[in-house]
Amino acid sequence: TPSSQTALCLDAVRRYLIRKPMTTKDLLKKFQTKRTGLSSEQTVNVLAQILKRLNPERKNISDKMHFYLTE
């Protein structure tokens, strides 16, 4: 069953992005569908809404765009 740590929610995404910069793929790995119980489409949609709300900073690391937040 999904635990509070694997649930896809704004606070969980915020915690990850404060800890370290992450690509979209890094974030998707943290919220795998088999753990959250969401479909792929739901995961993409929810994560997009959360990122729009958080409006994280962006920077390129090794030519890949990473999101991050400061506390």
């Binding site: 690509t23 979209t24 793929k25 998707l28 792929s40 993409v44 997009a48 729009k52």
Partner: peptide, 20 residues
Amino acid sequence: SSSEADEMAAALEAELNDFM
């Protein structure tokens, strides 16, 4: 699979492109 992850990442980036 990694290809599904790639597809999801691409879809997510496409969603965010309008915004970014």
